[in-house]
Amino acid sequence: MIERSNEDWLTSLQSPGKAKQGALADLREIILNSLPYAISKYLHPSDPHFDPLIQEVAQETLLRVMGRLETFKGQSKFTTWVHTISVRIALTELRRARWKEVSLDELQGGIDSDDKMREMPDQDMDVEISAEQSEIMAMIQKTMMEVLTDKQRKALVAVAVQGMPIAEVADRMGSNRNALYKLLHDARLKLKSHFEEQGITPENIRSSFEK
């Protein structure tokens, strides 16, 4: 494979004919060789889905790279820029597969239903919790009910409490990742200023868990 500078990559990819085909083939090779480092944590290389996923992501990455070459500002290696694109495509796909069976409602963990909680007892959960801690938890929850909109609360519980990816919550709410991050930011700001108005810091509350 030819060693290319950033300028070489850009010139070849924007030129017609063989130079472009050669650069695309090399870039594809680089993506195929690099992606396993990024995704083997989530999908074992022996998994039958591993190779097809890598091939598919490489193809999609090349399309996106060609579609937005002008947004590469040249402050890193060209291939690093390409890696951020391939990683985003791959992880988005993996998250979708990992979370596809989970609905937002079941993630609320009984926030709107006491019955649901009784149906799904969790042996490991809060077994050692003190009365004071459980009072604090109830208060945090009550604050969330009072201060946040339904949408903000649902998203915050799914992301911050249950660990659902922002992109997945966004999909289920008919939104997108960028907008959902902003919604969560607003929710956090609201809670923070509510606590401040009451003369309390989240740190204050957290220290109660350490007792």
């Binding site: 963990g109 009984g110 926030i111 809060d126 801690q133 938890m137 945090i140 929850q141 009550k142 409490v161």
Partner: peptide
């Protein structure tokens, strides 16, 4: 009153 399944670690 509502109950939320949240552990102290999550909170």
């Amino acid at each position: 009153e509502h109950k939320m399944a949240m552990t102290s670690e999550q909170a």
